[in-house]
Simulated assay, not measured.
Amino acid sequence: MTSQEFKSHILIKRPRYANSRIPVIEVLANKGSRRSEYSQFGPIYELYMYAFLLGLKKERRLPLPPRDLTSDFGLEIGRWKRESNLTDFLLMIIFTRNEEIGFDWNDLEDMDEAEITAVVSKIITFMEEYANGGLEYLHELLDKGQLTNSHYMFIDMYK
């Protein structure tokens, strides 16, 4: 399998998020024409990408609850931000953590379909768990009234 074929296996996935994170998502993601006291992200997946980075930065890896308590985006990773390289950037970050995922690039060429499926599942779980940790962090800040409204909110938190 080539790296491009491997990437295509990842890009067709739709990561999940905990339903308990919906309140913070509704406050920070633009869901229609509703206004908010906070600067809003566009679609939910845009907020999710930043939550993933925040979860990594804060070292907050939090497993998702059972599947019946989660939702997916209805949009595959490959369709997130199609006009930018942000998805590729996120994948590059993920691949730098290959030891944590249990993936070795050198093994890719010799992997069978079941092994590829298992690795892709680990990559998606990795993304989901760090995004969940980032969303939990945001939820805590929201509950404490500590989210500061600014166009640079995530940059400020990332510092």
Rank of each mutant, 00 (worst) to 15 (best):
135 L>H: 07
52 F>N: 01
30 N>C: 13
146 Q>N: 12
7 K>M: 08
62 L>E: 15
97 R>M: 10
109 E>H: 12
43 P>D: 14
4 Q>D: 06
147 L>V: 06
46 E>Q: 14
151 H>C: 06
150 S>F: 10
89 F>E: 11
101 I>A: 03
115 E>K: 09
72 D>Q: 01
68 D>C: 01
10 I>D: 02
133 G>T: 07
69 L>P: 00
79 R>C: 08
49 M>C: 08
31 K>C: 02
92 M>I: 11
114 A>I: 10
102 G>F: 02
35 R>F: 06
117 T>H: 12
110 D>M: 12
21 R>D: 14
28 L>H: 05
60 R>E: 15
157 M>F: 12
152 Y>I: 09
16 R>I: 03
29 A>T: 05
104 D>P: 00
88 D>N: 15
19 N>L: 13
119 V>C: 07
81 K>C: 09
24 V>M: 03
85 N>R: 05
130 Y>K: 09
144 K>R: 14
59 E>A: 10
1 M>N: 02
36 S>K: 00
67 R>C: 04
4 Q>E: 11
111 M>W: 11
33 S>T: 07
102 G>A: 05
47 L>H: 05
42 G>D: 11
146 Q>F: 10
117 T>E: 15
62 L>Q: 07
159 K>H: 13
34 R>P: 00
15 P>D: 15
107 D>V: 03
107 D>G: 05
55 G>D: 03
116 I>G: 02
66 P>C: 05
89 F>I: 12
152 Y>S: 14
147 L>G: 00
23 P>R: 00
46 E>I: 11
38 Y>P: 04
75 L>D: 01
155 I>M: 11
65 P>Q: 01
121 S>F: 02
55 G>I: 03
2 T>K: 15
35 R>I: 09
56 L>T: 02
56 L>Q: 09
124 I>L: 06
114 A>K: 15
142 L>W: 12
119 V>M: 05
92 M>L: 13
155 I>N: 11
14 R>W: 03
90 L>C: 11
98 N>T: 08
85 N>H: 10
92 M>T: 15
49 M>F: 09
56 L>I: 06
151 H>Q: 13
93 I>R: 14
13 K>A: 06
33 S>N: 10
159 K>E: 08
138 L>T: 03
36 S>E: 07
155 I>Y: 13
113 E>A: 12
113 E>R: 09
97 R>H: 15
37 E>T: 12
40 Q>G: 01
147 L>K: 03
70 T>L: 01
112 D>H: 08
122 K>P: 08
123 I>G: 03
77 I>L: 14
48 Y>H: 02
35 R>C: 00
107 D>N: 13
15 P>A: 14
56 L>Y: 07
64 L>R: 02
